[in-house]
Structures are given as structure tokens and as C-alpha cells.
């Protein structure tokens, strides 16, 4: 990300934001509601294109890419949306198969095995003929993850992955995220405001602030907890401890 500026109408959400995502890491982008986390994510996956600044994926600028280039980039990335975004009219298996449709020369047997393999990776073996409406929230989220990893993407983006999940399902999802990160060597960018998730899973945390319209802190979670002097960063990272004390 190179000096990205994001605006909605006259309002500037992010200004001159620059950062790198390193291969194989889990980067968590955090900040309070309305600070521009989701806007940043949408720029990173090419859903919004900024006229100012560059978003480089493998050396190609998403903001300036034509449709063919963008399609090639999108084969290298996967996205798990806040709502699972599974297509309700398709079975889970058909949803996971969807990204494979562009690949010619694969036999139906191979496609079916790949679908089973991906569902197995997210602990949903046997559910390929179920419709999303027949699954629980946690299962749908994992189904969305299976679809996101269908092409073994180099980078996986998550928008509030554990939002709406109970602690058990959230913990299961976190384990899967960690397993996929290790097993498939997938780089992960997670947008979240849930401190507990961030502290457990992140290799590196980047905090965005609404007033600064950009990054106010970046580093490993424990390092930030130890050394950050900015009260906004400390308030965010120590919120869990404060809540525990109250509880």
C-alpha cells in the first residue's frame, strides 16, 4: 500500500496510508468503528479503486489494473466477508466449487475431490449437499472460508471473522485460520475490532485512527502492549484486561 487516500464525497477517510504486508504473516488491522478499516480492506481487494495512491499485489497496482489483470490478481486472493456471503440458492459444495469453474481441463471427479478436501480443511466434511440456510452461523462462516481457500490463494482477507460467533465457534475459526496460515503458507490480513482475537492470532498489529486518518501504531501485539505510549493504542490493547477486571 503506497500513499493511499480514500474519500467518500468530500469526506476524507484515509490519507497517505502506506504499509507492507509480508509473505506468510498474519496482519491484523484494528481500530474503533468508523476509522476506515473496512474501507482499507475494500481497496486492498479491489472493490474500491482510489484515484490517489497505489495498492500493489505482486507488483501489480490494483487501483490501475484493467479487468484482465484484476481477474488474475483475484485468483491469488481469497476473501471471507463479515457475513459469510455464501450464495443461498446453491449448496455448500456448489459454493466451494464456484471459484473452480474458471479452470478448464479438470475432471468432475477432481473437482469433487477438491471440494471435499477444502470442506475437510474447515471441518465440514459431508456437508456438500446442504444449503447455507440449513447450517449454523459458525458452519456458514467455515463454509465461506472453504470457498475463500478453494484456489489456495496467496493472500486471504478477513473482514471481522469472528463477528456474530459464540466463543466456541470463534475459537474453532481461529484454529482453522492458524492452521491454514501454517499449512498453506497463506498470508493473512484480518480486519477486526475484537481485541481478544487480535492478541491471540496476529503476528503483527496495525492500528488505524479516525482523527489521524491513518496508521498510529504497528508492531507485534506483545511488543505494542509493552512499549506503546499512545493512550489510544494502550486503551485498545488493554481493553480486555480492563473488562476482565470489571467482570
Amino acid at each position: 500500500m503506497d500513499r493511499l487516500t480514500a474519500r467518500f464525497g468530500d469526506e476524507t477517510i484515509l490519507e497517505n496510508v502506506s504499509f507492507d504486508v509480508f509473505r506468510g504473516e498474519i496482519l491484523c488491522i484494528v481500530g474503533e468503528s468508523g476509522c476506515g478499516k473496512s474501507t482499507l480492506l475494500k481497496h486492498m481487494i479491489g472493490l474500491i479503486r482510489s484515484s490517489k495512491g497505489r495498492v500493489l499485489v505482486g507488483g501489480v497496482d490494483i487501483a490501475a489494473a484493467d479487468d484482465d489483470q484484476l481477474n488474475l490478481i483475484r485468483q491469488k486472493i481469497g476473501v471471507l466477508f463479515q457475513s459469510d456471503a455464501l450464495l443461498a440458492s446453491m449448496t455448500l459444495g456448489e459454493n466451494v466449487k464456484l471459484p473452480l469453474d474458471g479452470f478448464v481441463g479438470l475432471s468432475p471427479e477432481t473437482v469433487q475431490l477438491i471440494v471435499r478436501m477444502k470442506l475437510g480443511m474447515v471441518n465440514l466434511s459431508g456437508y456438500e449437499n446442504h444449503y447455507p440456510a440449513e447450517l449454523s452461523g459458525g458452519m456458514r462462516k467455515r463454509g465461506g472460508l472453504a470457498r475463500a481457500i478453494a484456489l489456495d490463494p496467496q493472500i486471504l482477507f478477513f473482514d471481522e471473522p469472528s463477528a456474530g460467533l459464540d466463543p466456541v465457534n470463534a475459537a474453532e475459526l481461529e484454529t482453522l485460520i492458524r492452521g491454514i496460515n501454517t499449512g498453506l503458507c497463506t498470508t493473512m490480513v484480518i480486519v477486526s475490532h475484537q481485541v481478544e482475537l487480535v492478541l491471540r492470532i496476529a503476528d503483527r498489529v496495525m492500528m488505524i485512527d479516525r482523527e489521524e486518518k491513518g496508521i498510529i501504531a504497528t508492531g507485534a501485539p506483545e511488543e505494542l502492549r509493552r512499549s506503546a505510549s499512545d493512550p489510544r493504542v494502550r486503551n485498545f490493547l488493554f481493553r480486555v484486561d480492563a473488562e476482565r477486571r470489571k467482570g
Binding site: 478436501m117 480443511m121 466434511s125 456438500e128 449437499n129 446442504h130 492452521g179 499449512g183
Partner: peptide, 24 residues
């Protein structure tokens, strides 16, 4: 090691597991 990681991630027995519900 990268390929070993993928091998460990894939559940071999799950590939053989029949769907809980048959196709329409």
C-alpha cells in the same frame, strides 16, 4: 516443508467420506 504442511492439513479419510445427504 511447505508441501509437508499441506499434506498434514489435508484429512485423507475425509476425502472418502460420503455426503451426509445425497444429491437432489
Amino acid at each position: 516443508s511447505r508441501i509437508r504442511g499441506i499434506m498434514e492439513l489435508i484429512g485423507r479419510e475425509e476425502l472418502e467420506k460420503p455426503p451426509l445427504r445425497s444429491e437432489r
